[in-house]
Design a protein around this nucleic acid. Structure first.
Lengths: 236, 236
DNA sequence: GACAAAATAGAACAGTCGTTCTATTATTTG
DNA sequence: CAAATAATAGAACGACTGTTCTATTTTGTC
C-alpha cells in the first residue's frame, strides 16, 4: 500500500495475484473460518475465474494451508520480529504481549486466524492440521524460550515453569478474543494486560511487595475509559 | 443407557427421536463444529430421511440453536448442578473447576461445543450468535457470582475483581482445550488445575506463605505420571 | 517482434447443500 | 375400532461445492 511497486523489479505476475488471493483468503478466514473459504466466493472477491484461482493452489486443502502460512507470516511480521528489537528478558516478553494484543487490528483482521484454525482443525486429521500443529509448536517453543530468557536475566525466579507460563499466556489471549469478539467488550485488551501483569508478577522472585515491581510495566493499556485500539503511531 | 424407559410413561415418540437427533448433532458439533452439522449426514447417522429429520426443526439454523441448547443443558447437568451441592465459597468454585475439566469426557464429547461455537459464531451475526451470547453471558454471570460468594466467605480478599477472575478462568479452560486437542497433551488437566490454584491463591487475603493455603485443594489432578481421565466412580 | 511458458477463462462434471412439496405410514385420542 | 393428528419417507428443486477439462490470453525471454 505505502510501497509503490511500479515495474523495475516486478515479481512474475502470478506471484502478485497469488498474494492478492491469500490476502482476501486470510481476511475471510479470520472472520468466518478456514472451512468457510470457498473457491467460488474467493474468485468473485478477487475478480478471477474459479478455475483461474484454483490453478494457483491445486486443491482447497493447499489453499487453506497457504492461507495459514500467510497468517503466520503476517503474525511474525507485526508481532514476533518487532519484539526481537527489544532486549532479552521481561521487556521483550512484554513487547510480545502488547504486539500480540494488537496484531489482528494491525493486519486488518476481524479475528485471530490461528485461534480459529485451532478450533476448526484440532480434531480433524489431515494436512491442514499437521501444518497447524507444526506452526503452533514452533510458536509455543519460541514463547517458552522468551520466558526462559527472562529467567536468565534474573527477572523471573529460577524455579519458574516456562511451559506452565506459556500455557497460561495462551489462555489469556484466548479469553481476550472471546471478550472482544463475542462480548464486544472494549476493555478486553486492558483485562488481558492485567492478566499478563499478574502472571509475570507471580513469576518474579518472591518477596514482600513484589507485586509493585510490575506496576510500571503496563503502559500500553492503562486507560480503561477511552477506547483506543492502536494508540501508537506507525513504527517504521 | 442405564435408565430403561420401556413403555409406562412414553414421551410421544417425536420427542424421543428429537433427542436422539440432538445427541448425534451435539456429538458431531463437538468434533467438527456447528457449521459442519449437515442434514444429510445427520439423517444417515440417525437412520432417518432428510425430510423426516428436517421436519423436526424447520431450518438448519433452528437445528444449530437446538444443538447449542442441548450442549448447555448437558453442561449444567454434569458441571453446574453437581457443584451446587458443595457449600458456597472456595469449595464450590473448585468443584466447578474440576467438573468443568471433565465435562466433555463425561458427556462423551471430543471437544467443548461451547468453545467451538464461540469461534464459529462470534463474528457471524444471526440467531445462533444471539442464542450463544445469551448462554455465555448467563454462564459468565453465574461464574462471577460464585467468585463473589467466595469473597463473601472471606476466602478471597475483599478487593478482588470477580470479572477479571472470570476472564482468566475462561482463559485457563481455553488453553486446556488447546493442549488437549491440538497438542494431545495428556497433562492438560494438570496444567489447568495448577493455573486455577495460582489464580485462586493470588485472590486470597495476602499474607506470608499464603500460597501454601491452597495446597490441599488440588486433589483431583495431582498425579502427573499416570494418565487418568475420569478417576472417580460415577456419582448417582 | 517471435517463441515458449505461464496465467487465466469458460464450460462442464458429479456431489452435496438446505428446503419444499406431496404421500404414506405411525401414533395418540375419542 | 375410528378419526384425528403427528411423524416420517421420497422425490424433486435450484444453488453451490471442489475439480477437471480444453481453449485462449497474457507475460517474460531471446
Amino acid at each position: 500500500m505505502s510501497v509503490p511497486n511500479p515495474s523495475p523489479i516486478r515479481a512474475t505476475k502470478g506471484v502478485e495475484t497469488r498474494a492478492a488471493i491469500l490476502k482476501a483468503a486470510l481476511s475471510h478466514a479470520s472472520a468466518a473460518g478456514f472451512e468457510a473459504i470457498t473457491i467460488g466466493s474467493l474468485a468473485e472477491k478477487t475478480g478471477l475465474s474459479k478455475s483461474g484461482l484454483f490453478a494457483h493452489f491445486g486443491s482447497k486443502e493447499e489453499l487453506q494451508i497457504a492461507t495459514l502460512d500467510e497468517a503466520i507470516r503476517r503474525f511474525n511480521e507485526v508481532t514476533t520480529y518487532p519484539a526481537l528489537a527489544e532486549p532479552r528478558g521481561l521487556r521483550r516478553l512484554n513487547a510480545m504481549c502488547d504486539n500480540w494484543l494488537l496484531w489482528t487490528a494491525r493486519c486488518d483482521l476481524s479475528g485471530c486466524p490461528m485461534m480459529t484454525a485451532i478450533t476448526e482443525f484440532d480434531d480433524k486429521p489431515g494436512a491442514v492440521r499437521d501444518a497447524l500443529l507444526t506452526h503452533m509448536q514452533r510458536m509455543q517453543a519460541s514463547l517458552v524460550k522468551s520466558i526462559q530468557m527472562t529467567m536468565d536475566t534474573g527477572e523471573f525466579a529460577a524455579d519458574c515453569d516456562p511451559e506452565q507460563m506459556a500455557f497460561e499466556f495462551f489462555g489469556i489471549l484466548a479469553s481476550c478474543y472471546r471478550s472482544r469478539n463475542l462480548f464486544r467488550d472494549a476493555q478486553a485488551n486492558v483485562r488481558a494486560r492485567k492478566a499478563f501483569d499478574r502472571l509475570f508478577a507471580s513469576a518474579m522472585v518472591s518477596g514482600p511487595a513484589s507485586v509493585d515491581v510490575m506496576k510500571p510495566v503496563a503502559k500500553s493499556f492503562a486507560a480503561p475509559a477511552k477506547q483506543k485500539t492502536v494508540a501508537r503511531s506507525t513504527p517504521r
